[in-house]
Design a protein around this nucleic acid. Structure first.
Lengths: 242, 242
DNA sequence: CGATTCCTTGAAGGTTGTCAACGTTGGTGG
DNA sequence: CCACCAACGTTGACAACCTTCAAGGAATCG
C-alpha cells in the first residue's frame, strides 16, 4: 500500500527510462498467430506490445494448448525469459501486433546495473506473478460462468487503466478455442456459457467484440467465490497507468 | 539453455551473497498454521525457509481458500512482496518451520543496488513464475488423478534437487483439504483419488508420508496431458541445487 | 477422557467433456 | 461474381467426472 516516497520515485524513474528505451526502437509488425521468437530476431527476447494482443502458451502432449497469460497493449513481454538465451518460442500474437524492443546487443541484461531499472523489473515481475496467482485462484475455485466473468472484467480493468477504452465495450481478439485454453474449458462449453450470458443480458460477445451489459451481475458472478482483492493499491494504478 | 558463462557466474555470485546474508541471521521458529507476516516482525517480509513447509494462499469470499504456491525448505519467500511495505499476510506455515531473514532495516531493497543480487532475484522470480504457469497448465488440463500425480512428482523433484531426499519417499505436511485447495478439488475427491491410486499400487499417502510405488505410471498420469518440459535446463539444476 | 481436527465412504445430482453434425464467416481463385 | 475452402462458431445427446450432502471412524492433543 504505502511504499516509501523515495522508493516509489525510483520505481517511476526506472519505468520512465525503460519507456524511453522502448520508445526509441523501430517497432516490429507481426501478423496474427505468429510466434514472437520466430520473427523478432535478437535482443534477448524482451519486448513491449505497442499495439495488439499476445499470449504465452504451453503445448500439451495430447495436442491441447494451455494459455497461461495474455498480454494487452503496453505489456512488457519476456522479462521472465531475460536470463535464458533462447528466443520466445512460447509467445504468440493473438492479433495483428507491433512490438518495440530494447536496442543494443544484450538488451536488458546490461541495463540491470541501474538500480532503478532493476527495481522496476522486479516490480513488473511481481505484478505478473500476482496476475498468475489470481488466474490460478479463479480457475481452481470458479465454475465456467465465473471464470468467463472474471476474464472479461480483468481485461476491462486492464484496458481502462491503460486508457485504451473508456466505456464498457472492447475488442477481444481471442477465438473461443483460445478462451477455453486460457480458462481450462472446452470450446464447446465456452460457447454454451457465452450463449447463456447473452440470453440473460449480462454479457455479449459478437465478432470479437465484448459488451458488458450488466456490470453488477458480472461482478457477482466473478466474485461469488473470488475475493474482492482489496489491496490492489494506488501504486499499481500510478505505475501501471502507462 | 546456454546462458553465457559470464552471466551464469554472476548469477551464482548473487546467489552466494544472498545465501550468506540469510545464513548470518538468527533463524525464527514458527508453529504449524501461523501467518508469516503476523509473527516475523519486520525486514520487509523477505525470508528463506530453512526447515519446514509453507504456502501462499488467497481467501475467497465463500469461505474457501485457494493455495497458489507451496514452499519447501530452501525456498525464498516474499520477493514478490518486496516492493510492498505490508507484512506477508498471505503466507502460512504448513508445518513447524524455521525462517531466515535479511538483516538490516530495509532488507533486500538496499541490496538491489548490487547487479549480481538483482540478477539473482530476477532469476528467482522468473523461476517462480514458471512454477505458477506449470501449475496453471496442469490444473486447466489434467483431471484429478493427473493433478495429484503432477503435484507428487513436482515435490519429489524439488526435494531431490535440494538434496533433502534421495529415495522415493518423503514427508508431505499437507492435509487433504490443503491438497484440494492447491489443486482446485474438494477434499472428498482428493481422498477418493488417493485411495484409488493406493489400490492400484501407484502411490501411497499415509500420515503425511508419500511413497511413490510406480514412478512410470505416475509420470504417465501427470504427462498424459502435460508436456515433458524438455527445457528445464542445466542452469536450473546448478543454481537450484542449493 | 473429551474435543477437535482430520480422514473415509456412500448416494444423488450438477457441471463439464466428448462426439458428431451442421451453420457461418472470410478469404482465394477461377 | 460465384464457387470453394478452411477456420470458426453452434447445437444436441450422452457419458464421465466431480461436487455436495451426510454420517461415521480415526487420529491427535489438551
Amino acid at each position: 500500500m504505502d511504499i516509501p516516497v523515495g522508493l516509489r520515485n525510483e520505481l517511476a524513474l526506472g519505468q520512465r527510462k525503460i519507456t524511453n528505451f522502448f520508445g526509441s526502437s523501430a517497432p516490429l509488425t507481426l501478423q496474427v498467430g505468429e510466434i514472437v521468437g520466430a520473427v523478432a530476431g535478437c535482443c534477448r527476447g524482451t519486448y513491449r506490445l505497442r499495439t495488439g494482443w499476445a499470449c504465452k502458451f504451453q503445448n500439451l502432449p495430447n495436442g491441447r494448448r494451455a494459455i497461461v497469460d495474455i498480454y494487452v497493449p503496453g505489456d512488457v513481454i519476456g522479462i521472465d525469459a531475460l536470463l535464458r538465451n533462447r528466443p520466445l518460442t512460447d509467445v504468440l500474437t493473438l492479433s495483428l501486433a507491433t512490438l518495440e524492443s530494447i536496442p543494443g546487443r544484450d538488451g536488458l541484461i546490461e541495463l540491470m546495473a541501474d538500480r532503478s531499472i532493476s527495481l522496476y523489473f522486479t516490480w513488473l515481475l511481481s505484478e505478473y506473478q500476482r496476475r498468475a496467482h489470481r488466474l490460478l485462484a479463479a480457475i481452481s475455485s470458479l465454475d465456467a460462468r465465473g471464470r468467463i466473468a472474471m476474464m472479461v472484467l480483468d481485461f476491462h480493468a486492464r484496458l481502462r487503466r491503460r486508457k485504451l477504452i473508456t466505456g464498457s465495450t472492447y475488442s477481444l481478439p481471442l477465438t473461443q478455442v483460445q478462451i477455453g485454453d486460457y480458462l481450462g474449458l472446452t470450446m464447446v462449453h465456452v460457447n454454451r456459457v457465452l450463449r447463456s450470458l447473452r440470453d440473460e443480458r449480462i454479457l455479449s460477445l459478437e465478432r470479437h467484440c465484448i459488451t458488458i451489459l450488466d456490470l453488477d451481475q458480472l461482478r457477482s458472478l466473478a466474485q461469488r467465490e473470488l475475493k474482492p482483492s482489496s489491496n490492489t493499491s494506488r501504486v499499481d494504478h500510478t505505475l501501471a497507468a502507462d
